[in-house]
């Protein structure tokens, strides 16, 4: 095994171009488990820790957060909870404080596990993945990023440089199910984001299909529901029946399996409950802040 230590982003791309089978290692919280338990023996590791810019974030002119791939979850919670409330809620549930000091969104995307907790909020906020190689840079919409179980849209010579996440313009929620009150991989998870300016509602489902995915029918339903009933304008209460229907549609969008962490049927059921609850929380928040602003 080789251990490659590029000092700059350009060097990293060159290294990756030279060794397409080399495995990038950032926080190492996924990669090292695989190494320690002999599940993976790559020819080479590419350490991304030395590349400073991957640990940095900035706000672009359009209010998008450009989040360096290796920014650890702890920093996101600390510094970005206002701009990225959904992602921050998700980040707070990742592993433990020690894991959150190392683990990163870039690593979550690189691993593309259906259970990754960053994915649902990224889907709900409509993020874009900035991937690069010596051949150039691509902006991959998050909706096109997840291809299969632990498979993503990166080419062998590509690395994730950053994730572009629009700052929240409305309430966002993330909720997950685990059979323990901390340190648990999601049995299933759900994120929802209200986008009042575009009168849009977006969602993300985790751990209940081969890939993280949106619940498009549910989104369309609630968009229509809010439009038709004039709730965006009136700021009225969301009918319980609508929230319930939304939940059912979210559950319907999932394609879960039975595994050691939970049954498919339970995952569906729990998603319906989480979707209903989180939609109500976001809507009630929206109403409350709307009133406060008025």
């Amino acid at each position: 095994m080789e251990f490659l230590r590029p000092a700059t982003w350009e060097e990293a791309l060159a290294v990756k171009a030279q060794h397409p089978s080399a495995v990038p290692i950032a926080g190492g919280t996924d990669v090292m488990v695989e190494l320690n338990f002999d599940r993976r023996r790559p020819d080479a590791l590419v350490d991304l820790n030395r590349i400073r810019e991957l640990h940095e974030w900035r706000i672009e002119d359009d209010d998008t957060v450009r989040l360096g791939a290796s920014v650890p979850y702890a920093r996101i919670i600390e510094a970005l909870h206002d701009r990225l409330p959904g992602l921050s809620l998700g980040a707070r549930t990742v592993g433990s404080p020690q894991i959150r000091n190392r683990g990163s969104v870039g690593g979550n995307l690189g691993g593309a596990s259906p259970a990754g907790d960053a994915h649902p909020p990224l889907l709900a906020s409509g993020a874009t993945v900035e991937a690069a190689s010596v051949r150039g840079t691509r902006l991959i919409p998050i909706d096109d990023f997840y291809l299969g179980v632990k498979r993503n849209a990166l080419e062998p010579d590509e690395l994730i440089r950053a994730v572009h996440i629009p700052s929240a313009t409305g309430p966002q929620q993330f909720a997950k199910i685990g059979t323990r009150n901390a340190m648990v991989i999601a049995v299933c998870s759900f994120a929802v984001a209200l986008h009042p300016h575009t009168r849009d509602v977006r969602t993300g489902i985790g751990s209940a299909a081969p890939t993280p995915r949106r619940a498009r029918e549910a989104e369309e339903f609630i968009r229509a529901e809010l439009d038709e009933s004039g709730l965006w304008t009136s700021g009225g209460e969301l009918p319980r029946a609508a929230a319930r229907r939304f939940g059912e549609l979210v559950a319907g969008a999932a394609a879960p399996i039975d595994d050691v962490r939970g049954s498919a049927a339970y995952r569906r059921h729990a998603l319906a409950v989480l979707a209903r609850r989180t939609l109500l929380w976001t809507w009630n928040d929206h109403r409350a802040t709307g009133r406060a602003a008025a």
């Binding site: 350490d47 020690q98 190392r102």
Partner: peptide, 24 residues
């Protein structure tokens, strides 16, 4: 990474030493 028994400071932040590659 599940038990924290290996927690050490790395540049001032507590991390699981079992999940840091030696070369890092």
């Amino acid at each position: 990474g599940e038990c924290g028994s290996c927690t050490v400071y790395l540049d001032g932040a507590p991390v699981c030493a079992c999940l840091v590659a030696a070369g890092q």
